[in-house]
Measured scan of single mutants.
Amino acid sequence: MFYPNSPQTSPQLTQIPYGQQYAMMQRQIQQPYHPFATTEPQARLYPYHYQGPIQQEQGGFITQQSTAASPQYVQMRVTPVDQSIMSGYPNQTANGSSSSSFNYNIHPQQQQQQQQQQQQLRHHAMPVGSVPLQDDRYRKQLIVNYLAPDVTSTDLHELFSRFGELDGARIIYDKQTNMSKGYGFVYFCHAEDAKEAVERMSGYEFHGKWLKVGYSTNPLNIVPSNSSPYVHAGSRGAAG
């Protein structure tokens, strides 16, 4: 039997160049792979992502010199942007860049009308829970959420009447099932009393439920100042 490094198959040491006398086997001759043993700084910083320098080929596509990437890492192929796409944008300079302001050559009167329309939209648009300043009635009506099913309009009136005089209180019921929808409205005579009720009743436990109280901004629920107070009856038909 002959071994790869046996004296019968191995040459004389004098015939082997210096430095390879003890590297006779194939696994010894093959050098191990060192990912950080390279002179390129990109490979030292990113050993798993770097795959060699990027070269520009004919046709405008950018390719990489090395083989496919590892399945664990996804390499994105980048193509140059066609400058003709950006030619339609206004205020574009000769080098292809555009300024931040756009001039669509709008007539001054049209621009003024658009600004007025935007101001009107901001004036009428009102986020949930906010209180408008032009109508004091919005500051007097509250919406009470997360009410228990057994709470009546009379219970709601008695709960909030300790903060001040009320114009009314009612629970909203479903017309088909005649069941409470879980929320109601309270109408105060003074805005200061309503503000105190919002601050003190939010998070209050009532009939096993934690109440959420806020201003009601729905104009359909506003009680006119010259109208008669609501009837605080315990029956659902009268309260709904």
Rank of each mutant, 00 (worst) to 15 (best):
Y48N: 03
S202K: 11
Q55Y: 13
V223G: 06
S153L: 01
L166K: 05
H207L: 03
A148R: 04
S99C: 08
T9I: 05
Q12W: 08
P224N: 11
Q134Y: 15
Q111H: 11
Q117Y: 08
A233W: 00
Q92G: 03
Y73A: 06
E165N: 13
Q113G: 11
I222Y: 06
V213F: 06
Q12E: 11
P108R: 08
R200V: 09
P149H: 03
R139M: 00
P53L: 06
H124M: 10
H49K: 02
S99M: 01
E192W: 00
G96W: 02
N218A: 11
L121S: 08
D167V: 04
A69C: 00
T177R: 03
A68Q: 14
F185S: 01
V131G: 04
N221Q: 11
V151S: 04
S153I: 14
Q112V: 08
E57F: 08
Y3T: 02
D150K: 02
A233Y: 00
V131Q: 08
Y104W: 14
H190M: 00
R137K: 12
Y104N: 06
V186I: 08
G240M: 14
I172R: 06
R170P: 13
E57A: 03
P127G: 06
A37M: 07
F61Q: 03
S98C: 15
T39H: 14
L156Y: 12
M24T: 02
S98D: 14
R27I: 15
K195V: 06
E192H: 12
R200P: 09
G237D: 10
L220G: 02
Y50H: 13
Q111E: 00
Y187G: 09
Q118E: 04
E192L: 03
Y50A: 15
D193M: 09
R27N: 15
S97I: 07
M126W: 03
H123C: 09
Q118S: 05
V151M: 09
S84D: 12
N105A: 14
Y50T: 00
S161E: 01
Q55N: 10
M25Y: 07
P17R: 08
T39L: 11
F61R: 04
H49R: 01
P224S: 10
Y46C: 09
S70P: 11
D135Y: 05
E196D: 08
Q116H: 05
A233R: 04
A197Q: 15
F102P: 09
G96N: 13
E158I: 13
L45K: 00
Q56R: 03
R200G: 06
P149N: 10
G168N: 01
A197T: 01
F188G: 05
P47C: 11
T79V: 10
Q110E: 11
V144W: 04
G60Y: 15
P80R: 11
M24I: 09
D167N: 08
I29G: 15
G59M: 02
A23E: 08
Y73H: 13
I62F: 15
H207W: 01
Q21W: 00
S84G: 07
I171H: 02
G208M: 05
D150E: 02
G168S: 07
Y215S: 02
G88E: 11
R139Y: 05
F160H: 00
Q117K: 11
Q117R: 06
Y3S: 09
M25N: 08
G184D: 14
K181H: 03
V223Q: 06
H124E: 01
A148V: 07
Q75E: 01
F160I: 04
A69D: 01
H124D: 07
I85Q: 14
P32V: 09
K195P: 09
S228P: 08
D135K: 00
Q115P: 11
P11Y: 12
Q120P: 10
H190K: 09
P7R: 05
R236N: 00
Y204S: 04
L13M: 08
S98G: 07
T63R: 05
A94L: 08
S84Q: 15
Q8R: 12
S180Y: 03
Q118P: 11
G234R: 11
L142C: 15
P41H: 13
G19F: 13
Y46K: 15
H232D: 15
Q111Y: 15
Y215G: 07
N103F: 01
A238W: 14
Q12R: 06
Q114K: 14
S153T: 11
R162C: 13
Y89I: 04
L133Y: 01
G19H: 00
S66E: 12
R122D: 03
N105T: 12
L142V: 04
V186S: 07
S6Q: 03
E199G: 05
T93F: 14
G129F: 10
T177E: 06
S202H: 04
M179D: 07
S202A: 05
L142N: 00
E205W: 10
S70M: 01
F36H: 01
L211P: 02
T93N: 05
